[in-house]
Design a protein around this nucleic acid. Sequence first.
DNA 1: GTTGACTCTAGACCTTACTCTAAGGTTTAT
DNA 2: ATAAACCTTAGAGTAAGGTCTAGAGTCAAC
Lengths: 148, 148
Amino acid sequence: MDEKTLRIGQLAGLAGVSQDTLRFYEKHGLLNPQLRSEAGYRLYSPADAQRVSFILSAKRVGFTLNEIHDLLALEVTRDEKSCEDVKRFVDEKLITVNQRIQEMQRMKNSLQTLSNACCGGDEPATHCTILEVLSAHGDAELNLQGAV
Amino acid sequence: MDEKTLRIGQLAGLAGVSQDTLRFYEKHGLLNPQLRSEAGYRLYSPADAQRVSFILSAKRVGFTLNEIHDLLALEVTRDEKSCEDVKRFVDEKLITVNQRIQEMQRMKNSLQTLSNACCGGDEPATHCTILEVLSAHGDAELNLQGAV
DNA sequence: GTTGACTCTAGACCTTACTCTAAGGTTTAT
DNA sequence: ATAAACCTTAGAGTAAGGTCTAGAGTCAAC
Ligand SMILES: [Zn+2]
Ligand SMILES: [Zn+2]
Ligand SMILES: [Zn+2]
Ligand SMILES: [Zn+2]
């Protein structure tokens, strides 16, 4: 009842991950709750909870744990790094995110086109293929040369 | 010189993946080039190439190989499946993609805010933290209850 | 005062998606 | 006709991100 701290099971429940996952993140330096109960139980502060939330969010948008580690490290190392470094790093990530958004948008369009074209009835779906849609209005997906 | 077929190294080069990766996809049913040269070399048709392109695109937007397999399977099984099935499946994926786009958009905003706030100079970056930004205009990232 | 829910550590194990190795056959160029 | 570059298979190895197990302490409640 110290403060508004959470034990591992509570935070895991709220965040929708396992306790093991939280310990795993800690072991890999993404998380580092400062408090322990007398019995040695981890006690997570609201800031810790926010951190978890950020990790999961970043993961869902496609960052690896290593990248997330670097993003979070801005907090810890910020007086060892210059603003120049920070800005360069963040702007790099921004480019990545923008590219992913564009690709997602294309995928969305393809799926939407397929969905629209499909009558949704219960006859055999002889006319329904993702690849057919892609080749029909086939932009973006054929540019093999565009690959990195 | 049959047609415009590609050997594995050529397709791998164009697609920006390894030959092993193409064979791996084949082994796992995502790809299945019909032709072989007399010597037993795989010969990929333009349709195969398109398929590869789709796989990579789908992967980049966050689908697993299993999910991609299912998307591609629409082609193969389409006269065993009803339009109803296809539409349900695709609409499900659409929801996923839309959610990811939204989350990416939020991440983009956070990074953009951080980038804007950062002067980019070479003094210590004491004021530059992703978590600070998130807590400052902190929507979306605190809703632990919103987790699945 | 013990049952049941919760937590701890250390370490083995798992899945996904490749990546590499070994041992060999093919094609092209000189 | 032989090297260099390409392809084949089967199977082992790797990295990321967990997940599970064992063995033990803790805490609330009946
Ligand atoms: Zn249909
Ligand atoms: Zn139909
Ligand atoms: Zn700055
Ligand atoms: Zn600055």
